[in-house]
Amino acid sequence: MSSSLALSKPTKPLLQLAIIAIVIYLPQFLPPGMWLSIGSLVICTLAVFFFAWNDEKSLKRTGVINAGSFLSTLLLGILYGVIFWVLIDWVFTPFIEKLTGQVTDLTRFDKLRGDTKVFARMMLSIWITAAFCEEVVFRGFILERIKVLTGKNWLAILLSAVAFALIHLYQGPSGITITFLAGILFGWLFIRTGYNLWVCIIAHGLVDSLFLFLVYSNLDLKLKALLGW
């Protein structure tokens, strides 16, 4: 009886991870479509909340319920958002692109250049799907479940970053590598703040918002030309 109970402990998080992996990576093998990817992220987010509530009658383990104050969470999110934006867009990106010899494929965002309606729509979308859903799935669930299985923070951060990078295959080798490094940053932040997912959500949303604004205003091209890359 005791051996079967011991076996059941890792079985449940492994099964949950497998279900999430199937849903989130299935669109990678289907004809490309942004709405399909968004839909899979939303479904996975709902599944994560269901798993947590079904297991513990609480969402606390996902990090969306945290004892941190609103103001400190907001300020930390903004602070790390700016720091991570500088690291990801202006340190990692030029270094990795020079190393691989390949520019990150971000052509799907070209349609928002100068188009206010597309910019507003994408801004709303990234805060819901990228900032909220991705953080719930990759940090609040995948990282947390791996930590439960292995007991090692560094391994949970590393493997969740790999999982995070794999949903960005459309960005090519450089984009995947940069996203992996970004996943390490957000994973570290999740652990560093005591599993306060809202800090990660705010930071992630700010990083993507700054990126979208630069593309919308064409400032990204001007800055790259100014910096010579």
Rank of each mutant, 00 (worst) to 15 (best):
V148N: 03
F51I: 00
F132K: 13
T179H: 04
K224Y: 07
I24S: 13
N196K: 14
E134W: 12
I157D: 10
G81S: 06
A47F: 15
G114M: 09
R108Q: 10
T179E: 02
G39P: 15
I184P: 01
I65V: 14
R192N: 10
G205H: 04
L158I: 06
F29K: 02
N196G: 12
K98R: 05
P31G: 08
N218F: 01
S69Y: 03
L159M: 10
S217R: 05
S174W: 06
P10L: 15
L15G: 09
P10E: 14
G183W: 05
L227K: 14
S174T: 11
S72Y: 07
A165G: 10
G194R: 12
L17H: 04
I83R: 10
K57R: 08
A203I: 03
N54Y: 04
Q28V: 08
L210F: 04
R108A: 11
Y170I: 03
L206H: 00
A6T: 03
Q102N: 12
S69N: 08
F119V: 04
I157E: 09
K98S: 10
K57A: 10
K98C: 03
L14Y: 04
L227Y: 13
L226E: 07
F138L: 15
S160Y: 09
F141E: 07
G151T: 05
I142W: 00
I96L: 06
V148C: 00
T11D: 02
G81D: 06
T107R: 10
H204I: 04
L76Q: 05
V162G: 03
T45A: 14
A120E: 12
F109N: 04
S8F: 08
I176Q: 11
I38C: 13
A156R: 03
A21D: 06
G33S: 13
I142K: 00
T62K: 15
L219D: 02
L5H: 08
L71N: 13
I20W: 11
L99P: 09
K152Q: 04
C44F: 12
I176L: 13
L99G: 09
L221H: 01
V207L: 07
F213M: 04
L166W: 09
K9M: 07
I146K: 01
F51S: 05
L124A: 15
S125T: 14
A130C: 00
G228L: 07
T107I: 07
L210C: 03
V86C: 12
L214G: 10
N218Q: 12
L206W: 01
Y195R: 14
V82A: 10
I83V: 15
F50M: 06
S125P: 00
V199W: 09
T93A: 05
L15V: 07
L59D: 00
K222I: 07
F50L: 11
G194Q: 12
I176H: 11
R192Y: 05
K152A: 02
L227W: 13
A130W: 02
F70P: 02
I19A: 06
A67Q: 09
I43A: 15
V42E: 12
A156I: 09
Y80R: 01
Q16G: 00
S4M: 11
T104L: 00
T129E: 09
S160G: 14
S37P: 00
L143G: 00
T104D: 04
N153L: 01
V48G: 11
F164L: 04
L206E: 04
W154D: 11
K147I: 01
K98G: 11
C133F: 12
L223P: 02
L79E: 03
L166F: 14
S125K: 10
A18S: 08
E56Q: 07
